[in-house]
Design a binder for these strands. Structure first.
Length: 587
DNA sequence: CGCGGAAGGT
DNA sequence: ACCTTCCGCG
């Protein structure tokens, strides 16, 4: 078992559960599906079947119910869920297995290739979708899954790996170029056979898929990997910004993502997501160390980020992934030892383990907008029946139960189909992927960091902390509640700030000289003072001015839905998303 | 059942 | 962006 203590660092517990981590997107349907598929208790509800990646929803209503529970959408039903699934067709995450009811198939080629690019996909053949990044020739021509290790060293409940630290281990290991020292010598290849695979005719991607996604793989669990790679090191930077150890010949044995084999559901980053869909800077893979480096960094970081929380850190190309937060105080809190450090998913899904307590009747087939408009009675009727059996659920999901009645007719009752026929040009997903390559785009942070306009340091280190923390609360908030080793030393912050400020005199750069760690930051003081003065002026100037969004208003979140709890963490995470370490200090 | 457009929500 | 909701169509 990995406790915050034994590894020397810890993450906030939300970091271990990306699905529900506030900064992350809410769990996506296909994550959820994978999650269900992975759990035996749901094998009567949904299960792998047929081809690789193919699964059958045996109990559509139940799946819908579970999904609805997860998303706090008590009105969920298979009709809606399947619509959501159909949206995956275009994204090529899923497709329908024709002729088989309730049967869909994951596009594992894409998933595997995109997320596990070092897996040997066999001959650059036909079945490799173009959306998938090409496999560098020097890398992973013959991918071997990492060997597993005895399954009794660490606690067995490690099925949910959340520690990005593994990456570092892997990276280090990769740097050393040795993977062969598995303790028990069991090769993963053999494991694949153990799982009962049709070795020969199976395509590599499928093999990969199996090992990655099949439920309860006996060996490739978090534990084995964890054991294999030891305790996460203090610096979980998967691929540091420093030159790649082996140059382009990074040992193929483990893609960073592969270290997360155990939790397909939660670490398969959403494929079409920007930095993942096609991590290469262009559609073409140029195989030089620089590109490789960038690629690896982006990829690893993406995965890593996803682990932590996809939104936790912006995807910057040459950024060093922030180190984990040592939640001395955070985790020392009441709930710390008990279950935070154990396994997120286990306490994360109140609805699933206790599906019974969550019994609520699925909404009957949609009444239709019109129907809901006119006869209030029928809607009310079934809603009440729902809520009656869903007291607990209502409690957790807040307004959920009300939905049935309050969803307004939206006025568009009748089909506005009078218009002329439109031809819609569909975007091919490959193109999607390509446009999502923008690894260098940091514009996303603009909103959160409008004091330092990103353009100002576009060329420079993209890791600039966003000083909005300092701005909104003045100097009072220097108190680091979360001492994070990764937080750039305040000196660095001021240094950067100053640097920026010098380059751009008009900038409101808060030098943050009040920082505890640099009480007498001698060297910079004059400048700092200057900036301080400047800052004060600006503050005064802005005092009367309209509120800028630098003022971070803590939103009143009343939604008790498990998906959205962790309010303070939410705040943290959201600000984090703004690209600011300093925000952590904010907590 | 399954599809996909359309609109809306967050 | 990723659904959720509704709906008409086959």
């Amino acid at each position: 078992m990995k406790t915050p203590g034994d590894s020397g660092f810890a993450f906030p517990e939300w970091a271990y559960k990306p699905e529900s981590s506030p900064g992350s997107r809410q769990i996506q349907l296909w994550h959820f599906i994978l999650e269900l598929l992975r759990k035996e208790e749901y094998h009567d509800v949904i299960a792998w079947q047929g081809d690789y990646g193919e699964f059958v929803i045996k109990d559509p209503d139940e799946v819908a119910r579970l999904w609805g529970a997860r998303k706090c959408k008590p009105q969920m039903n298979y009709d809606k869920l399947s619509r959501a699934l159909r949206y995956y067709y275009n994204k090529r995450i899923l497709h329908k297995t024709k002729g088989k009811r309730f049967t869909y198939k994951f596009n594992f080629n894409k998933l595997v290739l995109v997320n596990y690019p070092f897996i040997d996909m066999g001959s650059a053949g036909s079945n490799v979708p173009q959306s998938a990044p090409p496999v560098p020739s020097g890398v992973g021509t013959h991918f071997r899954f990492p060997p597993s290790t005895p399954s009794d060293v660490l606690s067995p409940n490690g099925e949910e790996l959340r520690s990005p630290g593994v990456f570092a281990s892997v990276a280090r290991r990769a740097a050393r170029g040795s993977v062969s020292d598995c303790s028990d010598g069991t090769s993963v290849a053999s494991e694949l056979e153990e799982v009962g695979m049709t070795g020969g005719d199976e395509r590599p991607a499928e093999r990969a898929f199996r090992s990655l996604f099949l439920p309860h793989h006996p060996r490739l669990t978090h534990d084995s990997l964890f054991r294999m790679y030891g305790v996460p090191p203090p610096a979980p930077v998967p691929f540091p910004a420093s030159p790649l150890p082996g140059g382009p010949l990074l040992p193929p044995q483990l893609s960073p993502a592969l270290s997360m084999t155990s939790t397909p559901t939660s670490h398969l980053p959403y494929t079409p997501s920007p930095s993942l869909a096609s991590p290469m800077p262009g559609s073409r893979f140029s195989f030089n160390p620089e590109d490789m480096k960038r690629y690896l960094q982006a990829h690893a970081q993406s995965v890593y980020n996803y682990h932590l929380s996809p939104r936790a850190f912006p995807h910057y190309p040459s950024i060093v992934v922030p180190q984990p937060q040592r939640l001395d105080k955070g985790l020392a809190g009441p709930a710390a030892g008990s279950h935070f450090s154990t396994h997120p998913l286990h306490h994360q899904q109140p609805e699933e383990p206790h599906a019974s307590t969550f019994k609520f009747k699925l909404q009957p087939p949609p009444l239709g907008r019109k129907h809901r408009d006119a006869p209030q009675s029928s809607a009310t009727g079934h809603v009440s029946s729902v809520s009656a059996s869903t007291v607990l659920f209502v409690g957790e999901c807040g307004s959920a139960a009300v939905q049935g009645t309050n969803s307004a007719p939206s006025g568009l009752t009748n089909s506005s189909s009078g218009g002329p026929p439109k031809i819609k040009v569909e975007l091919v997903s490959d193109i999607e992927s390509e446009e999502e390559v923008e690894v260098t785009d940091i514009s996303e942070d603009d909103d959160n960091c409008d004091v330092f306009a990103p353009s100002h340091y576009n060329g420079g280190p993209s890791i600039l902390p966003c000083p909005d923390t300092l701005i909104d609360e003045g100097d009072d908030l220097e108190e680091d509640v979360f001492k994070t080793p990764a937080a750039p030393p305040s000196g660095a912050i001021s240094g950067i700030a100053i640097g920026v400020g010098m380059a751009l005199p008009g900038l409101k750069a808060e030098p943050r000289e009040g920082s505890p760690s640099s009480p007498g930051g001698s060297q910079c003081i004059p400048l700092k003072l200057r900036f301080k003065r400047r800052w004060s002026e600006d503050q005064r100037m802005e005092a009367g001015a309209k509120r800028r969004k630098t003022k971070r208003v803590v939103p009143k979140r009343t939604n008790p839905c498990p998906e959205r709890e962790n309010h303070n963490l939410t705040r943290c995470c959201h600000t984090m998303r703004g690209g600011a370490w300093s925000t952590w200090l904010h907590l």
